[in-house]
Nucleic acid binder design. Structure first.
Lengths: 103, 103
DNA sequence: ATGATAGTACGTATATAATCGAACTATAGG
DNA sequence: CCTATAGTTCGATTATATACGTACTATCAT
């Protein structure tokens, strides 16, 4: 069924490191995370890089399920943020390491 | 073409963070890496946790291809080590973060 | 109400990965 | 040379992911 009122965001305590690593290991998703790390908040469309909406929806769902991204509904847009503090608490240094890599 | 004389180990510069994250996102492989982090050097069989040899061979191959593990042949055994220093240089803080997680 | 916009849900096709038995290869020891 | 051991390679199976078109839903503006 189509649009929804709210999203479910898992408690980081229930997210395993394997789960988080898997979510981060896809280039599209890693790119989303990199952009969110800079942009603070962005709509799905703003980060799609020309990809179809259904593909992006899939990747955001994976990122949400892994506890990495929070999505709030703002009118017609769904605004995404990195769950930085919570992820840092659960996996200290992980995002710093992943986002700090060059090349 | 069974056993081999030597293994190919990629230059870490050619390994992407996505590649490394994917290799680490499998529970069997993460367990291997965790054990190598403690044991310094171990044969494949010592880390198999009762799994078939062909399955383990697959996982070691993935770990090698991602630049995470080095394998040297010592007689009939193939001894594995974590490529700690090189990985730390290429992906600073990554292994500390991944291996430091509890639960 | 109509239309436009943002995104989800579903279904399906395709690709990638995990699992593991069986046959094989290399080395060591008797 | 024969046998045991450690691990690889091959091939087949199954599971998991990705990609994306189409239909749908929610919200907003007119």
């Amino acid at each position: 069924m189509g649009g929804m009122r709210t999203y479910q965001h898992p408690d980081l305590a229930t997210v395993t490191i394997e789960h988080a690593l898997h979510a981060l290991s896809d280039p599209v998703r890693l790119d989303i995370v990199r952009q969110l790390d800079r942009e603070i908040e962005a709509s799905c469309a703003a980060l799609d890089g020309g990809r179809p909406k259904s593909s992006m929806s899939h990747h955001f769902r994976v990122l949400r399920a892994a506890g990495l991204v929070h999505t709030r509904i703002a009118g017609v847009q769904h605004m995404n943020t990195l769950r930085r503090e919570e992820v840092d608490k659960r996996f200290p240094g992980l995002l710093d390491a992943v986002l700090g890599v060059k090349g």
